[in-house]
Amino acid sequence: MTELEAAFESKFAVNGNVKLHYTAAGSGPPIVFLHGFPDHGMGWRRQMQALCSRYRVIAPDLRGFGQSDAPQGYGNYVLANLVNDVLAVLAAEKLTQAAIVGHDWGGIVAWWLAIRAPQVVRHLVLLSTPHPRNHLNAIADPANAEMIAYIRSFQAPGAAQMLNIDELATWVADPQDRQALTDSLRRSSPEAMLGYYRANIPLGKVPSLGQLPLVKAPTLVLFGTDDPYVPVSAFDGTFREVDNVTALIALPGAGHFIHHQAAKFVTEQVEAWVERPPSSFRHLA
């Protein structure tokens, strides 16, 4: 364990009957990092270590993952509950607002947090995650059937019993980080992790989301051009969903897990985005 890792605090928040573990470090303006599948809060280790000298960095294990509770039943994993989990973490930290950074499912939660509780999102940063409308449209598009086949396989009965934890961690190159993820996934609930797909992505026809409030926070979207799980076209038109400055950055040749594959670049982009006062985005000159 490095000196920086020793400074990480292991803490808990509570949303109703669900106890949520999170890791925190540093002091200063708060940044909340939301992980996806298959990942955990400490999947943001590199960003947290780089930023904790200037920011209060906070990374929950989403419900069902790591040391957080995993309530039984897919209904526990609907997006309203996941958004409330983030609000519970903010409350535990006595925060009324924070910069929110999300990847994969954490990115989807981050989008919905910015849509449903705009007052708490100071800046919004998404990694490899299109706006929910564009994401569902991409899933519904027959042209993407091969790319999103993994989602349908995760929704199949008995899929949780087929998960291979060691295989799920192979995307992490660093041996220490891979072992930490493997250990965390072994503590996680396979049914819960796949419950995200069952609870929030329709099994049949994908409905239109209709009119949604525009995101108010300045929004930065980073994605890899070679992401095997998300079509690049799903990021088209993102600016139409945001009533603020919106920036999209494509990382040539990068895949889905860009917070690892391009860790330093991602950290630099996050810091450059969140260090600017939100008001400054409104008055570009």
Rank of each mutant, 00 (worst) to 15 (best):
E5Q: 13
E5H: 12
E5R: 14
A6Q: 14
A7L: 12
A7R: 13
S10V: 02
K11F: 07
K11V: 05
A13K: 03
G16R: 12
G16A: 09
N17T: 13
K19P: 04
L20P: 04
Y22F: 15
T23Y: 15
A24D: 01
A25I: 01
S27V: 11
G28L: 09
G28I: 10
G28R: 00
P29D: 12
F33D: 00
F33V: 08
H35D: 02
H35R: 06
H35T: 10
F37N: 11
P38W: 10
P38R: 07
D39L: 11
G41N: 02
M42H: 13
G43Y: 00
R46N: 15
R46P: 03
Q47P: 07
M48L: 05
M48Y: 03
M48F: 06
M48I: 03
Q49D: 14
A50P: 06
L51R: 02
C52L: 13
S53L: 11
R56Q: 15
P60I: 08
P60D: 00
P60K: 07
D61G: 05
D61R: 02
F65C: 11
A70Y: 07
A70N: 01
G75K: 08
G75H: 03
Y77L: 03
V78D: 11
V78R: 12
L79T: 14
A80L: 15
A80N: 12
V83I: 15
V83F: 09
N84H: 14
V86Q: 09
V86E: 00
L87F: 02
A88V: 06
L90G: 01
A91Q: 14
E93H: 13
E93P: 08
K94M: 13
K94W: 04
L95D: 06
L95Q: 10
T96F: 08
Q97S: 15
Q97L: 05
A99W: 11
I100H: 03
G102L: 12
G107N: 06
I108C: 03
I108Y: 04
V109W: 04
V109N: 07
A110F: 12
W111K: 01
